[in-house]
Amino acid sequence: MTQTTLTKGPARRGAGPRRAVAGPAPGRSDARAGYLFLSPWIIGMAVLTLGPMLASLYLSFTNYNLFNTPDWIGLENYRKMFADDQFHQTVSVTLRYVLLATPLKLGAALAVAIWLTQSRRAMGLYRTAFYAPSLLGASVAMAIVWRALFADDGVQDQLTSSVGLGIGGWVGNPDYSLLMLVLLAVWQFGAPMVIFLAGLQQVPRELYEAAEVDGAGRWRRFVSVTLPMISPVIFFNLLLETVHAFQVFTSAYVISGGDGGPAGSTLFYTLHLYQRAFSDYRMGYASAMAWVLLIVVGLVTALLFRTSRAWVHYAGGSR
């Protein structure tokens, strides 16, 4: 969008004389300059992303341990993968994480964003404060703090004990350790919150006023005005956070010390992939795992796009 306005503006202004002198040449040199500016990205994309991706697609059909020449084995890696119990365990752990973390995180982000749209004193401070966890959250230090919070006699243990649930710290408990990682993700709701905030501020005031005149209460206004109006933003956030949740790695890697424990309860797909690739050097198998993840995330995204037709409302669109 911005690109077209930038180039069209000056072109229209100087259209008359320029066309007479230089003919179509400026267009071509524009393109050349454009590609030149793009070149760092294009080179990076080709060399650092597309190339390795194609290589990994090839390797996924081979037996490759870094030392041998890749040996073509067809779909063997994929067949082995689906026969492996540990693979099924990692899929179930990851799906549970995605299904819990994504909606909870979006819910928290939306709730706080709505609260923050009301004008209060020191609003800027609150916005910064709620965004701060997202800056800290991905760090190794935060994962270590999280471990301490959820240890025996940690903050969580004391809280759950005070309401009569003496289950101990969640770090060492395979029934709850995943929930601990979900909470770590939910706590980092800052990025979707900022996007929600922007979306909420775009909702025309007069819609609320009209609804109020029609006798709609707070909840009614939220359901009938706010939600449809910000549905494109919800869709965007949902898409982004779902894809993001499938790729969860750092928190589990740091909190479990890299082994996905206790008892495999935090052995995420990506963590398992990492172990297969860099502990076992089964590069072919790990590449196959990476491609299955890519395909699954692609399918989930396509599915979300398909359902979006039913519930995403674009203002000014035909629906």
Binding site: G168, V171, G172, G261, A263
Partner: peptide
Amino acid sequence: LSAQRAAQLDP
């Protein structure tokens, strides 16, 4: 030593 405690002590 319970696995729970060991997991908490780790590393």
